[in-house]
Simulated scan of single mutants.
Amino acid sequence: MKYLKRIVAGLLVAGTISGFSAQNVYALEDKKALLGNLTNELETVSVLRQESETQLEMNLKEIEKLNRDREIYRIRAEYLRSNIEETMKKGEMLDEKNPNIIQAALLTLTNGYLEMELADILIAIHSSAEEFEQYQEKEIRKDDKEAIREGLQEKLSKLEEDLAQVEEILSNGASRSTELLTFNGELSVKITEVETQSETLSAQKTKVEEEIRVEEEKRKQQELERKRATTFIRPASGRLTSGYGNRIHPVTRRRAFHAGIDIANSRGTSILASRNGKVTFAGYKGTYGKLIIVNHGNGIETAYAHLSSINVKVGQSVTQGNVIGKMGSTGRSTGSHLHFEIRMGGSTVNPSKYIK
Rank of each mutant, 00 (worst) to 15 (best):
L4I: 12
L4P: 00
A14P: 02
T16R: 11
S18C: 10
F20W: 09
G36W: 05
N37Q: 11
L38C: 05
L42P: 06
E43V: 05
L48P: 01
R49W: 03
Q55N: 06
N59M: 05
N59T: 07
L60I: 04
L66E: 02
E71Q: 13
E78W: 00
Y79T: 14
R81C: 05
E86T: 11
M88V: 12
E96M: 06
K97E: 02
I102Q: 03
N111W: 00
M116H: 03
H126F: 14
E131A: 11
F132A: 10
Y135L: 04
Q136L: 11
D144G: 02
E146R: 08
E146A: 10
I148N: 03
L152R: 10
L156D: 04
E161W: 04
D162P: 00
T178D: 10
S188I: 10
E193V: 01
T200L: 13
A203T: 11
Q204D: 14
K205R: 15
E210T: 15
K220R: 15
K220Q: 13
L224S: 15
T231G: 02
T231I: 01
R239T: 10
T241K: 07
G243P: 05
R253M: 00
A259N: 09
D262H: 08
D262A: 09
S266V: 12
S266R: 14
T269K: 14
A273S: 13
N276A: 12
T280S: 10
K285Y: 11
G286Q: 10
G286V: 10
G286L: 10
Y288R: 14
K290L: 10
N298M: 07
A303C: 14
G331H: 06
L338H: 08
G345A: 12
G345R: 12
Y354P: 07
